[in-house]
Design a protein around this nucleic acid. Structure first.
Length: 586
DNA sequence: GCGTGGAGCGCG
DNA sequence: AAAGCGCGCTCCACGC
């Protein structure tokens, strides 16, 4: 059952659709529900397990969660439309071609980042103050129904375009996949992306358990007592005085890179930047206190008392996740730097009494994804090891794990110089298929072609810079053009791996959510997803549910692998830690 | 005074 | 030891 939910002058409008987006013949008429009744009506309809179709999950779901209504499935027209508009699998469809021609003012087809106005603030009011459709062009019930139908049509036509076929998808070693296969992959991606949007809203609603007094204790230990607003904490004040003496600069502001650079130069410290690793080269007595200052200043500015006041309420950190916020399919976040919680303060993330945090991460996800993408049998042998790098080291690097790791990451990132660059030929000799796969992606990018993740998310087209650089005439311009092309090559090289890893993670997350919901419906005390970070999840759960949650996490990882790649002999192990405090997880 | 871009550093 | 991918946040510097 498919239920379309759209804003309406009197609240919301609901319409039952068929799978391909036509009004359901047995119940074709829309139903208008007042804002006040909506949560109750939605709750009642949820018993029939519909797929809720809406413009953006963020428009509806936060307020529904606020009203205590959790839903099972949705279809997020904005996120799915963005995938379909750009995917190579649907590039030949009218949908993608129309999206390309669309003017800036039709936001349905815009990617969800940057170009699109920010989502309405996720307050409770959002649901109940939805503006009339007239104020939101393109979001009437009829417009959304047409949009859904158009997306389903594009999906049903999913296939690799002729252009892409002739451009050597075969010589990269990729097996030709059937149209049905592409359709299935895209369908899976759209479902996972929409589930991700629900999970993001649910995790924001739940929040990460955050003990303010533990955070404050960490700050006090490092920085001293809380200073007055605008003041440096005691420890930073002391270090500033020390630096002013050591660098003979009585008014030095160590926060100013320019002042700092001049002061360092005056004291014979010849650095080209004030980056940590470069400062560490020098043995001047000012360096040690300077590095400590930088570390602590960062803690104070980014995750100090002000951060705590702003982002933690009633023992929960509730960041906003931005699904589809990264072109590769990774999530971004807005506010509070949720995806950059420094190790220093992870001690403040603490389970409630009688609960544990289960922190699970997919070990060495990106290299394993590369193995599966490239179907490199030799590397797959190494990937049967729990420690893939150790396996690679044994096969091709005389047991030197560090070397193996640097070489493999270099291949994924496109390293050309340094140790990593030097190891590339050695890696390529041992694993021609895996290395050939990323090399092909790099050549595609350099030549201005798009590349595509396992499930069908495609890289953006070349930038204006790249296009303009194609017309270079002088040798100098040509050198610049080559540099721009190589830069795009590194991007597309990484995109196929990072994007496919994001595909895997999205499926992992969606599968885990499904299992946790099933456990709850059996009435068991059960864990909640509270955090997700690219290849890592955190579940907050009662002591009694720990074993079941771990099993759900592991089963979901296996399920995700099979959804993406089928039954292949490559392991995707998860490492699981059951802890009270996040800082004990690794 | 305000917005923007760079530097620097946190995370994967 | 310090190169190669993707982000967000804070500060400072700069231009209007």
């Amino acid at each position: 059952m498919y239920l379309l939910l759209a804003a309406h002058a009197d609240g919301a409008a609901l319409q039952q659709l068929t799978a391909d987006g036509a009004p359901e013949p047995s119940n074709p008429d829309p139903r208008v529900v007042s804002a006040g009744d909506l949560a109750g009506v939605v709750r009642g309809l949820e018993a029939r397990h519909p797929r809720w179709i809406w413009h953006r999950t963020q428009d509806w779901y936060p307020a529904l969660l606020g009203a205590g209504v959790e839903l099972e499935r949705c279809y997020d027209l904005t996120l799915c439309g963005s995938i379909l508009a750009h995917s190579e699998f649907t590039a030949h469809t009218g949908y993608a071609q129309a999206a390309e021609k669309l003017t800036q003012d039709d936001e349905l087809h815009q990617p969800p980042r940057g170009l699109q106005p920010p989502a309405p603030p996720p307050e409770q009011g959002a649901l109940f103050d939805a503006p009339a459709p007239g104020q939101r062009p393109g979001q009437s019930l009829e417009a959304l129904r047409a949009e859904y139908a158009a997306q389903q049509a594009a999906l049903s036509q999913a296939a690799l375009s002729q252009a892409a076929l002739s451009q050597g998808a075969t010589d990269s070693g990729t097996a030709i996949i059937t149209d049905a296969g592409r359709r299935q992959r895209l369908q899976l991606l759209l479902a996972a992306e929409s589930a991700g949007a629900m999970i993001a809203a649910e995790m924001q609603h739940t929040g990460v358990p955050w003990r303010e007094e533990l955070h404050e204790q960490i700050l006090a230990d490092h920085l001293g007592p809380r200073p007055a607003p605008g003041q440096r904490p005691a420890r930073l004040e002391t270090l500033t005085a020390e630096l002013r003496l050591l660098l003979k600069s009585p008014a030095l502001n160590p926060d100013s890179p320019q002042e700092l650079m001049r002061a360092l130069h005056r004291n014979g410290i010849e650095v080209k930047s004030t980056r940590q690793w470069e400062l560490k080269e020098s043995s001047h007595p000012a360096i040690v206190p300077l590095l400590e200052y930088k570390k602590l200043a960062r803690l104070h500015a980014a995750n100090g008392w002000a951060w705590l006041d702003t982002w933690v309420k009633d023992g929960r950190f509730q960041p906003e996740y931005v699904v589809g916020g990264v072109v590769s399919g990774r999530w971004a976040s807005r506010g509070g730097g949720a995806l950059q919680i420094p190790r220093q303060i992870r001690g403040a993330v603490h389970a409630d009494p009688g609960h544990k945090l289960i922190v699970a991460d997919a070990s060495q996800l990106e290299p394993r994804v590369l193995v599966a993408l490239a179907q490199d049998a030799k590397m797959a042998e190494a990937a049967r090891d729990k420690d893939l790098y150790a396996g690679i080291a044994a096969q091709g690097f005389g047991g030197d794990r560090a070397k193996a790791k640097v070489a493999l990451l270099g291949a994924i990132y496109g390293a050309t110089t340094g140790e990593s660059g030097r190891l590339m030929p050695q890696l390529a000799r041992t694993y021609p298929r895996a290395v050939g796969f990323v090399e092909q992606a790099a050549r595609d990018g350099e030549a201005g072609r798009t590349v595509t993740s396992r499930l069908g998310r495609s890289s953006p087209p070349p930038s204006d810079r790249w296009l303009q650089s194609q017309h270079s005439t002088t040798a100098e311009e040509q050198r610049r053009a080559d540099s721009i092309a190589r830069s795009r090559g590194r991007f597309t090289r990484n995109f196929v791996v990072q994007g496919s890893a994001a595909d895997w993670a999205a499926c992992w997350l969606a599968e885990l959510r499904r299992r946790l919901r099933a456990m709850r419906s059996e009435g068991a005390a059960v864990g909640e997803l509270v955090f997700f970070l690219h290849d890592e999840v955190m579940v907050h759960c009662p002591d009694s549910a720990v074993a079941d949650c771990i099993k759900a996490i592991e089963d979901s990882a296996t399920a995700a692998k099979e959804l993406l790649f089928g039954r292949i002999p490559v392991e995707f192990p998860v490492s699981v830690a059951v802890v009270d405090s996040y800082d004990n997880a690794k």
